[in-house]
Nucleic acid binder design. Structure first.
Lengths: 346, 346
DNA sequence: GCCTAGCATGTAACCGCTTACATAATCTCT
DNA sequence: AGAGATTATGTAAGCGGTTACATGCTAGGC
């Protein structure tokens, strides 16, 4: 209570040296059973908790992993973090979690703090795949795995989703139904969202429907989606018999749906909408949303697994994983069946 | 690259002792300016990052706070964590985040791990306000603040919301509109949800409307909410001219709404529904949900602030904060105006 | 009975910092 | 000029563990 117990306290009480206590606590085999029991019971009795701080200094390993995500309160990243935590806990590691707020400078700062804490490895969702942060880690020889972003650098491990494929899936579905026109609302260039758009566009074109396709850039938020509807109407983009709209995230898709409802445009009979991410309640939105889903949880797990590998074997071959996205068909899209609540009473 | 630089490397290069380097790095004033500059430029040049592990051992402080929440992927807790992180970062602390999955045994285990890491303090959303965990921390003299839960123990600091008041607010709104019957769907006894119900019930009764009130227990999930609708109908609970239903969380409320829609019962004209929490998309649910909101972000901030106080001043008077909840009125409730999307084009 | 092997434990250096105390150098004041 | 105060730096003892190496002991083989 008054003063933290230390190993030498236990050693003194047991009438042995600290070396022996240390051996017992780290399961070293070379200890007589009787001694071991005596020490363990003292440890239990006095509720001694060994200091990892001291141990870390001595062993030069911390069993701590730094995790840097863009936004800690964003469900996407937390789903990710949960997968990470699962694996780390199983391997006896703890997690130093921080968030960069999409700011590269802050990201680099956080990495530096993690290095000072001598973390054994880092998992991050980088703002940019190659940056000061990765440079710093490489220089310090700290193993790291990039999440939700792929790197062109051959030597870095990453776990991400195949965004191009995700866009392709959406296009594929739309092509199967007999839509007469396609709209692609893309996000910021050179980011995951634009890869999604790219996949969509490529698939449409390669089916010879490029002429029925229009593309809009910089549509990123719910409000962007809502606000673009009137202008689409003005440009006669929605008066075709049936139009398919692909958006690179669910927020935009929901904005669009809201806009369509406000303008009394029937969904999905006249306009089909496909989003991306399957954020919470996409499933239970006013019009349940067809969307492309990423396996966030596995992404976290796989990344953590890979990091564990890297830590154990420094010249382990970097894994470059691209998870396959999956299309979830719901009411917002022509092909869908009618919506039933998940657990409807029969 | 090959070997981590240490302070004595820098000291040797600068031709001084480690003590001087240490003084420079911790902004001790008693160093000649010229010496300071020389050292700092060497530090910068060689990108030396001091080891917090060693520093922590030496100073017996880690500037690390353990945070234990129930579920790391739950938006509520992450909103909380974000508030926490903000304050910690501002104060130069890092966060060791873990989640207990509502398991008291695991919670206690996590706390023990945190203690071994010699965290300077702990923030937790305890499964139960008094438990092995709090006991362990008290015994070790580690300052802690309880979040989202109030404790009867005079000596523990907590930051929570006034759940009774939240329930009362819901009742107040319902009483102002001329509803003829009230339903209260409560969660698990002895938890925050039941306090909410308690506040609701008390307010209804104290307005002499106890006879128009029915209470159901153990309704906790979306599905519970959905499934209870038919039985309410069967027991003629909803055939009154207008009924108000209070649920102790938004999931239940959404389930109820879904059930009502499925049974073609008009909302809010025949039944009004009020939820609790304002989870994401409550605002944009099929029927925008009237709900009681908690200031999660401030809760995290306040708790972290309090912990900082506690750390600086060991016999600081424990703060016992009960934040006021706020009622957000939306379409699911009679008193509401018609729903307009947040950014509707004029 | 002696040598050697193997087991159980102790000794002490080390991990990379901080900091109380000692020391040296410079300044101030009578 | 010398005492005392002040400033800048060095010395070395921790902090609480780990672990290579040394040591003592017991037992087996000859």
């Amino acid at each position: 209570m008054s003063k933290q117990l230390t190993m030498s306290d236990i050693a003194r009480m047991a009438g042995v040296s600290t070396a022996t206590v240390s051996r017992v606590l780290s399961n070293h085999p070379m200890v007589r059973e009787e001694t071991r029991d005596r020490i363990l019971s003292l440890v239990k009795e006095h509720r001694y908790e060994p200091s990892y701080v001291a141990r870390n200094l001595s062993t030069r390993r911390t069993h701590t992993i730094g995790v840097v995500v863009d936004d800690i309160s964003n469900p996407f990243f937390m789903e990710l973090a949960k997968g990470v935590e699962l694996v780390l806990q199983k391997n006896g590691y703890t997690m130093l979690l921080t968030s960069s707020g999409w700011d590269p400078a802050k990201e680099a700062d956080l990495i530096r703090t993690l290095l000072r804490n001598r973390v054994d490895g880092v998992l991050l969702t980088p703002v940019h795949p190659e940056s000061e942060s990765t440079e710093v880690m490489r220089r310090n020889g700290v193993p790291f795995v990039v999440m939700n972003c792929h790197s062109d650098n051959e030597s870095v491990s990453y776990v991400s989703t195949d965004n191009v494929e995700g866009g392709r899936l959406a296009a594929e579905l739309m092509l199967r139904t007999n839509l007469t026109r396609f709209l692609c609302l893309s996000g910021v260039p050179h980011q995951s969202t634009s890869e999604r758009a790219e996949g969509f566009i490529h698939e449409i074109r390669s089916h010879g429907r490029g002429n029925d396709l229009a593309v809009y850039d910089e549509v990123r938020t719910f409000d962007d989606g809502y606000n673009i509807v009137p202008s689409l109407i003005a440009r006669n983009r929605l008066d075709a018999v049936s139009t398919g709209i692909f958006t690179s995230n669910d927020f935009v898709a929901m904005g669009i749906l809201e806009g369509l409802i406000a303008h009394r445009i029937p969904v999905p009979s006249q306009v089909s909408v496909i989003g991306y991410d399957d954020i919470a309640f996409a499933e239970r939105y006013r019009i349940p949303l067809t969307t492309v889903i990423q396996a966030k949880h596995s992404m976290g797990q796989l990344a953590a697994d890979e990091l564990m590998e890297l830590i154990q074997d420094r010249n382990h071959n970097p894994a470059r994983l691209l998870l396959k996205p999956r299309l979830i068909v719901r009411d917002s899209c022509t092909a869908a069946q009618s919506h039933e609540p998940r657990s409807a009473v029969p």
